[in-house]
Design a protein around this nucleic acid. Sequence first.
RNA 1: GCGUCUGUAGCUCAGUUGGAUAGAGCAACUGCCUUCUAAGCAGUGGGUCAGGAGUUCGAAUCUCUUCAGACGCGCCA
Length: 554
Amino acid sequence: MIKKRLIEILSEVWSEIYPEVNIKNSFVVKEPPKNIDADYASNICFQGSKIIKTSPIKVAEEFIKKLESSESKKIISKVFIAGPGFLNFVLNREVFCSEILRVFTLKKYFDLNIGDGQKVLIEFVSANPTGPLHIGHARGAAIGDSLARVLKKVGFAVDKEYYVNDAGNQIDVLGKSLEIRYKQLLGEKIDLPDGYYHGDYITDVAKKLLSLDKKDLGLDFRKIILDEMVLVIKNDLKKFNIEFDNWFFESSIFEKNVENQSKLDEAIEVLKSRNYIKNVDGAWWLMTNDFGDDDKNRVIIRNDGRPTYFATDIAYHKNKLDRGYDYLVDIWGADHHGYVARLKASIEYLGNNPGKIKIILYHLVSLLRGGEKVAMSTRSGEFISLEEVIEEVGSDATRFSLLMRDGNSPLDFDLELAKKKTNENPVYYVQYAHARINSILKNAKNEKINTDFSEINLDFLSQNLSEKEDLILMKAILNYADVLVLCAKEFSSHHITGYLLDLAGKFHNYYAKHKIVDKENQNLTRTRLFICELLRQVFKDALELLGISAPESM
RNA sequence: GCGUCUGUAGCUCAGUUGGAUAGAGCAACUGCCUUCUAAGCAGUGGGUCAGGAGUUCGAAUCUCUUCAGACGCGCCA
């Protein structure tokens, strides 16, 4: 981590000049704008001048004097002031070379272990099992799955879980919908009422039942359709390259244990014993208003004794924590944002630090067809299924376009556009770069060029870097670590797509400018192939975090 | 009415504790395949960062305000 080293050096120099002024964490080191010919730049002099009230330029001059007499010369070959007082640094090439060799030999992009083996449960999708997944579910699915991969990468022990709402009224209605379709197929004249599920997939299941030749109306339609829908959803997710570690059924919250207590009873008991619920008008209310963020108290047990959805959800989250997870991550559509405060309150009331739960909201996807909004409803059976979209657009392209955006931004997904531009989708730009590199390495191998790089050392590498672009590529490879750390910090993987597009652009540019395999110059060829190999690894690694394939040829 | 989020190029969107001349893809236009994959490269045009005020060396980014849009404010799930 070169940046980190540079920050340390600057901090040290600063404390030598102004020992009484603490500058720590108040300045940045980043890459300068394109027009400035330096590796890194820092605003430390602005931050410093703010504190000690002199001009940034004066601070900068002082700073450079001190820097040049320090040990840092081994790393920094040139420093200069630019603009209103930025410090720009040119580093010795050996610094980049040794860092890149370290990455290559350790096969790790950074030495931090952010997660430190802590257990994280990430719950996402959790769509009602009343029909196939549609494109609206896909965003949460892509975001959750990718975040799980990123968190795993930075050292968390991650489990992915799907919460199946199999206990509510909607499943009863779903079961009845199947029963009516089944009877219709048997020739009965019954209409399927409004408010029942009208999708064709119900009829398909009914037909399947008929073909089993069990014309028995005593069938458990509710269970049959529920099992069938869970299978359908699993299958949809599989096509989207997502597999869950665990499927948690809401109904299990109501199951009694040997002491005749359900998970729900246990949760209510805890809340009662801690005096966070009270009875008003025959109903039990959780005092979420006291927590601060929520604006009113919430009913958890109705006055007829039935629990609300919120009560079940509290019991579910209590169960997650009971299973020993250090952190819980929930991925929700932004339409549930009003629910965040009360859930956090309940976590605290159960006796846990509400910081243990992280709720990621993503804006809903508006589905358009040729600029026109498409209304979707699972009940009416009018929706575009995820399966259809994957078939038309492809899983890779769908995931990439959903992951390109920050979850906080609303997103329009135009089917016509997505279909039409299949070959112009940014994902192919990135995949193409990977395929090209792969092909170069393969060709080199066929030409009997040595593609084993384990013996490349610092001297060889720094002597054979010939073009400015070699260094640009190396720096870009080293930046991957920062991107991963940023994604883990922000719980968002959309920085990866941006990074990949940038990296692909840099490679395509390089490819057009320089011939990588040059038989006249073996050392140069070897150096460039080495950089290609590293690029290939980074592309593959990053694409995998997005759940997108890295094709060897296209 | 209250609350959360959003408003950046014709379109879809990036922009990392405030930083130097605000970026990418698509769309439009101009060049580049006898040479490791043209799903590519190079270049041109395109901007009141929704409007206004403030904070400071410096604002797309922070504060206030106006406008526009999405969503939420159940003893629904």
